[in-house]
């Protein structure tokens, strides 16, 4: 099946069987390896991407569902100012993520902070529970999220 969609702001198309999962198509067809292929069951969250400006687990999306939609992966997000906010926030808070979860954690934090500009406790918890990895303490991550949120607010004001 020929599927046309926008990938990281560029229109593209791919000829794949329609039942393939989006995670596999992005990794195998486009070599976008920032999203990991881990549990394959929508549990770990390491394959999160942005589909039409919404976070989704790409292992739970059959590729035919992305026809005509826009997909953003961490590789695309890394070019944005939002990514810089997360980078600065995590660096300042001393968030040492492991190689495996770092890209997805960055993406989910960045995108959800667009929605929750000043996150409250419940919203922080929502950001934390989008990705399941044990590498960094919740306290450090919370600090990183709050710092990122402050940096973003400052940037948006200026």
């Amino acid at each position: 099946m020929l599927i046309e969609f926008v990938l990281n702001d560029e229109p593209t198309s791919v000829e794949v069987p329609a039942y393939k999962r989006l995670a596999d198509v992005l990794r195998e067809g486009f070599n976008l390896t920032g999203l990991r292929s881990a549990c394959g069951k929508g549990y770990c969250g390491l394959c999160t991407v942005v589909l039409n400006e919404e976070l989704v687990y790409s292992c739970m999306i059959p590729v035919f569902q992305i026809r005509g939609k826009s997909v953003q992966t961490i590789e695309g997000y890394a070019e944005t100012e939002g990514f810089n906010d997360v980078f600065e926030g995590f660096k300042e808070a001393g968030v040492h993520l492991c190689d495996y979860c770092a890209p997805t954690r960055t993406l989910t934090t960045g995108i959800l902070l667009d929605r929750y500009v000043r996150p409250d406790a419940r919203q922080i918890e929502e950001i934390l529970s989008s990705v399941k990895c044990n590498c960094t303490p919740y306290e450090t991550l919370k600090k990183g999220i709050l710092l990122t949120s402050q940096i973003r607010q400052k940037r948006l004001k200026s």
Partner: peptide, 8 residues
């Protein structure tokens, strides 16, 4: 469920 699941 988690936020990304609720989006699907």
């Amino acid at each position: 469920g988690p936020y990304p699941i609720r989006n699907s």
